[in-house]
Nucleic acid binder design. Structure first.
Length: 190
DNA sequence: CTTAGGATCGCCT
DNA sequence: GGCGATCCTAAGC
């Protein structure tokens, strides 16, 4: 295992699905604001739902960089979404961070989201990025340095898996992972 | 509770 | 010109 790709006890050079599963329970902060990851999805250049499926472009180049860096893209013209690049350079794999259980900087997240309800602050990739202040400026940055902080899970977690959300291709792959029973998911598992 | 439509940018055919 | 790894609101049942 490449120890330089190891962050918060996770080997980012592993398969996207394995990294996504192991990220559940890890704390993610951006400038000290964030919480515990409760939902993540894996994407890989070998399957057509991934942005990297068609090869490197201006938009997705950070998916093809070294593991342990961020990939931020704009969705539907108005939302930002945060991913972690995994595997090795030129492969094109990543993990979409879909939901957090808010733990740090609640008031700042409420202000950015214009909402009080804790359950809706980070329940979805666009909401999460807005609450943490993630924009294009956060693309292609190392995850083990400021403004990012990743902290290992402090206890064992029960992880469930299911089909990914909001895609039309490769819908059969069970590459969505979540913390069992969490009220902070973007949508429940069934 | 479920569904439908609009907002709005950048990549792709 | 079409369509997305989305979110919010409004209306219908």
């Amino acid at each position: 295992m490449n120890q330089f790709a190891c962050i918060a006890g996770i080997d980012f050079s592993a398969d996207a699905a394995e990294v996504a599963r192991r990220l559940i329970g890890v704390t993610l902060l951006v400038d000290g604001v964030g919480g515990r990851i409760v939902e993540a999805e894996a994407y890989d250049s070998s399957e057509p739902a991934a942005h990297s499926y068609g090869g490197r472009t201006e938009r997705n180049f950070s998916m093809f960089g070294p593991p342990g860096r961020s990939y931020v893209y704009r969705s539907h013209g108005l939302h930002w979404c945060l991913n972690f690049a995994v595997r090795e350079p030129d492969h094109g794999a990543g993990v979409l961070i879909r939901a957090l259980e808010p733990t740090h900087g609640l008031e700042q997240m409420r202000a950015r989201r214009g909402l009080q309800d804790e359950r809706l602050l980070c329940a979805g990739p666009g909401r999460l990025a807005q609450a943490l202040g993630v924009t294009r400026a956060h693309n292609n940055l190392a995850l083990d340095a400021a403004p990012f902080t990743l902290l290992p899970a402090t206890e064992a977690v029960a992880v469930v898996a299911g089909p990914r959300i909001g895609i039309s291709k490769a819908v059969e792959l069970p590459w969505r992972f979540g913390l069992a029973g969490s009220p902070f998911l973007s949508r429940p598992f069934r």
